[in-house]
Every structure is written in structure tokens, then in C-alpha cells.
């Protein structure tokens, strides 16, 4: 049987030090575990096909980074903040209510009570419900390494399903989000109302001035190998008066920017039908809250 090791470092430095020492082994950084543990259990229920290398499970729960803070410009969300903590945070409610919208539609209470925002990001699922809002909020991810940390924009972070630009000796510690002037909204289409993964999800951030769109950031999830920013559609919206018919027309063009696949939740064809609709709804809501 595969060998498993478990470590629970007490600080970020200890964690980074541990990672330095593990060079040829497989490592799993464990936060809430709601994605990893079911996969592990499935592996343990199967007839092993080959001898797998030992797996080091490193629990991050004791390494800090579990608070939501602010300064005059930014909100800082620790990577180990649970989805429930975001949902219940007054700070988030005041500055980033779109995240609460997204959290409320992610899985169910019992999952959100343990799942973390950092875990949802690092899992890098194209369907993750937190990623589209973070894209339109233009979030920055702080990655800590043994020689210091660097900051990467959410839009440059994801490279494919389950893969990101992070180095295997780095750890995501904080999500930084600028307090914007505009409003954002999140819309999700799942197969059920609760406890469901996105067939398509959409997020929109809009800054308005006298009925004219001053700035727009749009994102769609579960329609490509990663959640995607819809730059072309954004540029079509900026400078235009935001009228429902115009938004509808602009959104219909978003199919050019996505590349959905058939999977167990929906067909590519269906996703192409609903992606413009979800985006339109998100934009309309982001505008209507002005």
C-alpha cells in the first residue's frame, strides 16, 4: 500500500522549511480538504494499479493566515479563511458583497464550514465558484516562498484545470482585493439549487457614471480549461450606456471568448447557450445596484 505521512506545522516558516526538505516526494498541502479527502478515499477504495510514491499530507490549519483584515485601500483575506467565515464577515459584507453571493451558492453549509478560500483557489477548478468573482475584483494572490513573497494577479494565476503558476515550494497566503468604486454580482447555474457544482457561473464588476459604463470586468467559469476573463466583451461595454437590450446583444458575443467541453454536468452546446444569459444577468445585477 502507498505510504502516507502527516505533518501539521505550527507556523508559515515551519511549513516553508518543511517544503524545502521534500524534494522527490509527493506533497499535498491540506487546508479544508473537502476536495482532496473524497479523492483520497476513492483511491483507497480501489484496487491499486501500481505502487505509488509516498504522499506527504501537510496540514496548513495551524499556520495562521486565517483572518480577514483591511486598510484604507484593500481587503486582505487569509488563504485559510473558511467560506463560512467570508459569508459571515461584516467587512466582506461592506466592501465585497459579491463574495458573499458566491459563497452562499457554493456547496452547502457543512462543506463551507471547512472549505477555505485558498483551497478553492489552489484547487484551480474551472468551475470554482470563488474564482470568477476574484477575477472581476482583480484580486492579487500573495505567494510566500523561503526567500520572500511575490504577488500575482488572479488573471495571470491559472494555467489549466488544477494547475497554476505557483512553484511547488510556495504557499498561497493572502488574497488582496482593492476596494473598488463599482459594484459586482455573481450568478451561478447548477443542476440543483443547493450542493451543486457550476454548469456555468458568471461574475461582473461594473463602474458606472451617469448611466455610462466607465469600467467593466467580466468573467465566466466552467466554460474553458480555467475560469476566464472576457476582455473583448468588457471592451464592448465600456463607454456605452447600459441598457438591457444592449447588454443582451453584447453578451451574445461572449461565446467567441469561451471554449466549453461536454462533461457529466452539461454539454458544450448547452454551456454556449447559457453562458451569455448568466453573464447578462450578472451585468444587469451589477448595474441595478447603483
Amino acid at each position: 500500500m502507498r505510504e502516507y505521512f502527516y505533518e501539521a506545522p505550527e507556523s508559515l516558516d515551519e511549513l516553508l522549511g518543511l517544503l524545502q526538505g521534500l524534494n522527490d516526494e509527493e506533497v499535498k498541502l491540506l487546508a479544508g480538504g473537502t476536495d482532496f479527502v473524497p479523492k483520497l478515499s476513492k483511491e483507497l477504495d480501489e484496487i491499486p494499479k501500481e505502487q505509488k510514491p509516498p504522499l506527504h499530507i501537510i496540514y496548513m490549519g495551524n499556520t495562521g493566515n486565517n483572518e480577514i483584515k483591511e486598510d484604507s485601500d484593500n481587503v486582505y483575506i487569509g488563504a485559510l479563511v473558511t467560506l463560512t467565515e467570508i459569508e459571515e464577515s461584516n467587512l466582506i459584507k461592506q466592501h465585497l458583497p459579491v463574495l458573499i453571493q458566491a459563497m452562499e451558492e457554493t456547496a452547502g453549509h457543512t462543506v463551507r464550514n471547512v472549505a477555505t478560500i485558498g483551497g478553492n483557489i489552489m484547487n484551480a477548478s474551472p468551475a470554482a465558484d470563488s474564482i470568477t468573482p476574484l477575477l472581476v475584483l482583480d484580486a492579487q494572490f500573495v505567494l510566500a516562498g523561503i526567500d520572500g513573497s511575490r504577488t500575482i494577479a488572479a488573471k495571470d494565476f491559472f494555467t489549466g484545470p488544477g494547475s497554476t503558476v505557483i512553484d511547488d515550494k510556495e504557499v498561497l497566503t493572502t488574497i488582496i482585493i482593492k476596494k473598488g468604486k463599482g459594484k459586482a454580482a455573481f450568478k451561478k447555474l447548477g443542476r440543483r439549487k443547493a450542493e451543486t457544482l457550476s454548469v456555468v457561473n458568471a461574475a461582473a464588476y461594473i463602474e458606472m457614471d451617469n448611466g455610462i459604463c466607465k469600467a467593466a470586468r467580466l468573467a465566466l467559469g466552467a466554460v474553458a480549461p480555467t475560469a476566464v476573463r472576457c476582455y473583448q466583451t468588457e471592451s464592448k461595454l465600456v463607454g456605452k450606456p447600459v441598457k438591457p437590450e444592449l447588454i443582451k446583444e453584447i453578451c451574445s458575443g461572449v461565446v467567441e471568448e469561451i471554449n466549453p467541453i461536454d462533461d457529466i454536468r452539461a454539454t458544450a452546446w448547452y454551456r454556449k447557450q447559457v453562458a451569455p444569459v448568466m453573464l447578462e444577468r450578472a451585468i444587469n445585477q451589477a448595474c441595478s445596484e447603483e
Binding site: 502527516y6 491540506l30 473537502t34 473524497p38 478515499s41 476513492k42 477504495d45 457543512t110 464550514n113 471547512v114
Partner: peptide, 27 residues
């Protein structure tokens, strides 16, 4: 289900309801 879907393993962990099949025991 042992997969975090059915909820029949729900327990209260530090005051919050969680699915115990999704939690590594050592944590």
C-alpha cells in the same frame, strides 16, 4: 457515500456542522 455528498456522517466540529468523511482525522 464516503464522498461528502450525502451528509449522513455530519458531526459538529468546534461548533460547526461538518461532514466527517471529508475531514482528515489528524486535523
Amino acid at each position: 457515500c464516503n464522498h461528502g455528498d450525502c451528509g449522513s456522517c455530519t458531526v459538529i466540529l468546534n461548533g460547526k456542522a461538518v461532514k466527517s468523511c471529508m475531514i482528515i482525522a489528524l486535523t
